[in-house]
Each structure stands twice: as C-alpha cells, then as structure tokens.
Design a protein around this nucleic acid. Structure first.
Lengths: 215, 215
DNA sequence: CATATGAAGATTGTATCCAATCTTGTTGGG
DNA sequence: CCCAACAAGATTGGATACAATCTTCATATG
C-alpha cells in the first residue's frame, strides 16, 4: 500500500476526493479549522495542501478571506477544454509513434479493467480505470511536464463530472470508442488517435457543461 | 506602490527574484531557517510560498529533505519550450483577431519602453518590458488560464536566462523583431505573428541551453 | 426606512515550540 | 582499508498559541 510519508500528502489526497466527490461543493468556503479537525491534522499541513490545489486551479484564494472551492463558469470550462485539446493532441502526436507493442498490450489490459468495472456497475472504478487508460497513453510521449499539465486540466473539472458514467448507454459508447482507439494505436495512426481522443473530450464537455448550468 | 496584503505574498515575490537572479543557484537546497530569517519572516509563510513555486516547477521537493532550486536538464528545457510553443501559438491565434487599435497602440507604447531601456543599457528593465510586451499580446486572447500556464513556462527558465540582453547586438536584433511583429499585428496577420513569436523563442532556447550546458 | 457605526465573534495569518527524520562524522569490527 | 553501526547535529514536519483581519449583527443616526 502506498503509505504517506507526510501528513500533507495524505491531506492532499483526501481533499482531492472531497472536491471530486462533491462533498466540498463548488463555491463553498474551505473553513480550515473544522476541516483540519475532521481530517485529524492541524491547519499547517492543510494550508500547504490548499496551496497546491490553488496552483492547480481547484480552489481559489483570497487573502484574509480564505480558500473557496473553484466554481467554474461556462467560459472557464470552454477554456479548460481548449487547453486540454492543445496539450492532449501534442501528447498523442508525440507518444503514438513511440508506443511499443508491450505498451499497447498494457493499454488493452487497462481497457479490460474498465469494462469489468462497467459490467459490475462500479462507477468510481470505471472513472479511475478510464483515467489510467488515457494517462498511460499520454505518458508514452515521455513528456512529464506536459502530462502534469494535462492532469491539472482533468482535475479542474473533476468536481463537475459527477454522473456521466452512471448511464449504461454512455458506458457502452465509451467502451466502443476505447476499442476503436486501440485499433488506431496498433496501426500507429496518429491522426485518427487524435480525432478519437477529441471525441472523448466532446462527450465530457457536454456532460460537465450541463452540470454547471443546472444550479 | 503595490503593498503586500500578506507576508507570504511578499516572500513569494522575493523568492522569484532570488531564483531568477541566480542568488539561489539551481540545485542548491533551500534551507528554510536561514532563508526565513534573512527575509524577516517565520518558516510558515516561506513554506507556503515554496509550495507555490513547487507547483510551477521552480523548485523541487523531497519529503523530509526539503526544497531544492530546480536544476533543468536539456531535455527539460526542450520540453518547456515545446509546451510554450503550443500555448503561445494558441494565444496568438486567438488573440490577434481580437486586437483593437488601442491594444496595438498600447503594445507600441511598451516597445518604446523596451527601446528606452535598451538605450540606457538597463538589462533588468529591458527584461521586464520585454515580458510586458509579450504578455500584453497573450492577454489579448482573453484566456487567463492559458496565459497563466505560459507565465509558468517563462518562469521555469528565468533562472537560466541570465545574460542574453547584455549583448548590444542581441538587443538591436530583438528590437527589430518586435517592430516587425507589431507590423504583423497591425495587419492582423496571425500566421506571421506566430512565426515571429517562434523566432523569439528560438533565440531564447539557444541562449538558455548554452547556460545549462556550461557547468 | 435606509444607512452609518461599532463591537463581538469567526476566521485567517504567522511565530514559536517540539517531535520526527535525515545527514554527517566517528568508531569499531572484519 | 572498507564498511557497518551508531551517536550528535542539522533540518524538516506539524501542533499550538496568539495576532491581524474580516464578517456579522445589533444599534444609533439622519
């Protein structure tokens, strides 16, 4: 098991979950005293973790007023996805030609995980495995800084993604897209891979934007 | 004058200067006790500022061992500039068609500052004004998240830029490029603007990579 | 009634203190 | 001579305490 070397490391992980799961709602203030208490640490490591999240755009900070869970406007959302497309296209463009046969096998293994999780209706497992799949692909680029930036963009919309994978129709569609993408990867077809990744993003955009417009 | 609302805000600014100016050298450990003392604050705000810089890649962090000023390899450098080109191209592509005549005038005003600073051999003023020029252009895109990412990439290489503007020949060349770029902006010529920005980056790459290879 | 004033409470910002961990140098044995 | 074990010092990690600032709400004032 991945043990935490420091408290702030664990706090950071827990905060991500709280935000992504909506237990900390967008727009809500992060009250340090109570949150630190509920996490069983003091405010010092909590504040350092919040600084990290601020840098990723997951929370905003106002001096002397505190941290607030990021509340994206539709314009923000559009911008995040535009940036994602720039970065992901590049990762794929660089990465696909570098894929070894073992890499492709590994990607297929992950897809099996995704589909197993889908079959057992485990939404959070689907989300996690789906993420592993796409990032395994991005990492083929051997550009760690680029991958980190992509990760930040994904995280920025995590709080909104919510219910996409709950609908079985969406799941089936996604599985089919993934299989098509692996075929493109096997053929080392860069342009088709980019196009399929773009389609995947489009799904995500439409879901998240609906969530944002609701309240 | 821009007063600091919090100590950590000022600490962050000072740290950036220390790193960009090389007073904190790449690879060197940041000893919190002595640095905090020399900045006249306690370790708490210093550590929060360091977390921000870690997120920007300006320093690295190893649990229980501390923070170290980032020491870029040539591969890192190439990656940073590749990311820069992705992001800057997009900012220009979006921004140039949105430029108003007033925006262009403003850009020309900044160029006058650059040239005035160049004439009086004030290297740090040239650096600052040059940065203002390019970011005024990027900001025309109305994509604040994109601009922030570009800013991070610039900062990542600040510690290495060092002496570029010290050579009068480089200065003259840069001024000419800037004027050519303004002409392209006036014509709202997106592709030419992108090409000229790319040329500007190339200069920067070659300078910085020499600095990295030296020691 | 609207608005200004101010005090009490809540919350954040920072300094200080101690514990936990790492680094360095020494010593001992092989 | 080399390397392992260990102790002393240095450095970071985190808890607590208090100061600074903001928010809220009651009260007064025009």
């Amino acid at each position: 098991m991945s043990e935490n070397v420091t408290a702030q490391e664990g706090v950071l992980r827990e905060l991500r979950v709280l935000i992504a799961s909506g237990q900390l709602e967008p727009g809500q203030q992060v009250v340090q005293d109570s949150l630190a208490a509920s996490l069983g640490v003091s405010r010092v490591p909590l504040r350092e973790a919040l600084k990290v999240l601020e840098g990723e755009g997951q929370v905003t900070y106002h001096p002397h007023r505190g941290y607030f869970v990021a509340d994206l406007s539709v314009e923000d959302l559009v911008e995040v996805y535009r940036i994602r497309s720039l970065l992901e296209d590049e990762a794929i463009r660089v990465g696909v030609p570098l894929l070894t046969d073992e890499d492709v096998e590994y990607l297929e293994d992950i897809l099996n995980d995704v589909e197993a999780a889908a079959k057992s209706q485990d939404v959070s497992a689907v989300t996690a495995a789906n993420r592993r799949f796409h990032f395994a692909l991005f990492e083929a680029s051997n550009m760690p800084r680029l991958v980190r930036l992509i990760k930040n963009q994904w995280d920025a919309t995590d709080a909104y993604r919510g219910v996409y994978f709950a609908a079985p129709a969406n799941l089936a569609h996604m599985n089919q897209e993934h299989r098509t993408m692996v075929a493109a990867l096997k053929a080392r077809d860069v342009e088709k891979s980019i196009a399929l990744q773009a389609a995947h993003r489009e799904n995500s955009v439409s879901v998240v934007s609906q969530v944002i417009k609701k309240p």
